[in-house]
Amino acid sequence: MKEKKDTIDKSLKRKHKLQAKEVKVFYDDFKAIKGIDMNIRANKITAFIGPSGCGKSTFLRLFNRMNDYVDGFRMEGEILIDGENIYKKKVNVEQLRKQVGMVFQKPNPFPKSIYENVAYGLKIQGIKDKNYLRDKVEDSLKQVGLWSEVENDLNKSALALSGGQQQRLCIARTLAVEPSIILMDEPTSALDPISTAKIEELIYELKEKYTIVIVTHNMQQAGRLSDYTAFFYMGELIEYDKSKKLFTNPEKQQTENYITGRFG
């Protein structure tokens, strides 16, 4: 009955919020992840970098089991959150995803109102209290700095928002279900520089309360934002260190080649 204990309480005790042990991933016969061990710290921002197809997104999506729906997906090894293997049979995947939120590459609001987008995650948990929902929606939108912009348009379609606003809405939607971990899969790659700056600022603020893992193509972004950076190449974890160290004085030649722009 370990699950009953308060998760925040645990995360304070544990330095390593997320752990991967001997993880291998296959898509049918293709080996996408070739055996990775990794520990990710609580309340830090960890960036995954590497060229396209290096497995960083696949690896990220292991932590909320989003790969489960991919045809031909198979995994070996263990993924632990707060010391619990999330690929065990009795794990409730829905419960897990409430704890581990995700923001996607392209803003993907539901074709519904702004309000409905943010309230959705709570409503599917069976929460019906109108006042509670309203407060929660307001809170979440305030956290992402969108409240003042949409305060009077809560019933308008989310699709009418700009790309940057949509992405902030998607983050608000994720925050509303109170996760402790947020996975971000290139959250700014589809946005203009101004929106990107706003989102980065937001991510930086969020790390106080959340453990954040972010996949990015943008080396500057990784350098600016993250505490730790992991470099992936061809399904392997090549180097993982404090960002400052990795970007200024990498151990491995491959890492240096990549961050100096010699390939990828």
Partner: peptide, 20 residues
């Protein structure tokens, strides 16, 4: 992407189908 978003928020299969 709509499916992804719904599952990522902890929705079950049927919730994703019926509500999205």
């Amino acid at each position: 992407s709509i499916r992804d978003a719904s599952y990522a928020l902890g929705a079950s299969k049927w919730q994703t189908i019926s509500q999205q």
